[in-house]
């Protein structure tokens, strides 16, 4: 087990390192970095000042080392557009996005695991088809449409929940429900397929032959094995969710990372963009590491390799 974790951790560090090179190259590979920073219509003097300020005349390896040093100290530079430190910007917004992501994911799992188990246990029957329909609807409905419907019902008609902002946990319910329902279908399909597979396994027959009650057979012996692939999907989806959902964040005026990245692209705000890319990649690497650990716990056979 410790060897397995050490290997995974080493790999994660290596990937993070590669990603930092890519994020660094993002600006430099433009060809003329100074030109990209200065924008259109910059004079030769402006360019010279920029080269001077940012040290663009130094060898690339030196520039990378000093940039990486800054990043490791939490200094991502200053945003061209917002004129404030990038780290402050991100720190302000990432909280909202992470809360939204985790709530959405929780909602998605709370819907998809019971539905997937039900559909698998009664596979082929009307219960299976109903469960599939409920989950498929999440995929078929455009998320902005569902968002607007929820706002109309819960915020405008019944006045139960706020329609926009990020001031309290109640503000997160509608956007999280929208996003959660939207990402339910792949989870539900994976749980259903995993359960059907697990239920046809010999160890399930053994569990039944031992005289265990049906719920123990299904929820312990089958579900535990069916959840292994779900962990991987959680990682991917959580990564995507933390990357931000521009549409949902703008509809609910939930000022998060997705919206920030969207603005940064529009304004060619490279320091912000670099920071977001690097941050999301590192989030992915960390999530993958976590999912390896959880999988090793779920499936003991993985611990040896």
């Amino acid at each position: 087990m410790p060897i397995y974790l050490a290997k995974r951790f080493g790999l994660a560090v290596l990937v993070a390192f590669c990603v930092s090179i890519l994020a660094f190259a993002l600006l430099r590979l433009q060809g003329n970095a100074a030109g990209a920073l200065a924008g259109e219509g910059a004079s030769a003097e402006d360019l010279a000042i920029i080269v001077e300020t940012y040290g663009l005349d130094r060898p690339l390896i030196v520039q990378y080392a000093s940039w990486l040093g800054d990043v490791l100290r939490g200094d991502f530079g200053t945003s061209y557009f917002f004129k404030s430190p990038v780290s402050d910007l991100i720190f302000d917004k990432i909280g909202n996005t992470v809360i939204l992501a985790i709530m959405s994911l929780t909602i998605a799992l709370a819907i998809s695991i019971p539905l997937g188990v039900l559909a698998a246990v009664f596979s082929g029957s009307w219960i299976d088809r109903l469960c599939s329909l409920v989950s498929l609807l999440g995929q078929a409905l455009p998320s902005f449409f569902l968002a607007l419907c929820l706002v109309m019902l819960f915020a405008i008609k019944w006045r139960m929940l706020p329609a926009s902002g990020a001031d309290s946990w109640r503000h997160f319910i509608l956007p999280a429900a929208t996003l959660g329902y939207y990402i339910t279908p792949p989870f539900m399909r994976l749980v259903r397929a995993g359960m059907i597979d697990a239920l046809s396994n010999d160890y399930v027959r053994t569990a039944r032959a031992k005289g265990l009650p049906a719920h123990r057979v299904i929820l312990k012996h089958a579900l535990r094995n069916a959840l292994v692939p779900v962990v991987g999907l959680v990682t991917v989806q959580l990564g995507l969710l933390i990357g931000g959902s521009v549409v949902i964040e703008s509809i609910f005026a939930l000022d998060g990372l997705g919206y920030l990245a969207y603005q940064a692209i529009g304004y060619r705000d490279f320091p912000v963009l670099q920071a977001v890319v690097l941050l999301l990649s590192v989030v992915y690497v960390v999530l993958t590491l976590l999912s390896d650990i959880v999988n090793a716990w779920l499936d003991p056979r993985l611990r040896v390799s």
Partner: peptide, 30 residues
């Protein structure tokens, strides 16, 4: 009576045990 007074063993010992749980857990639960 199943798994109690009347027990069963199967052909494939490789797959008849659940890979996710220790032997002790599987032996004691029933």
């Amino acid at each position: 009576v199943r798994g109690n007074e009347m027990a069963m063993i199967f052909q494939e010992p490789m797959t008849a045990l659940n890979p996710a749980f220790p032997i002790g857990d599987q032996m004691t639960e029933a």
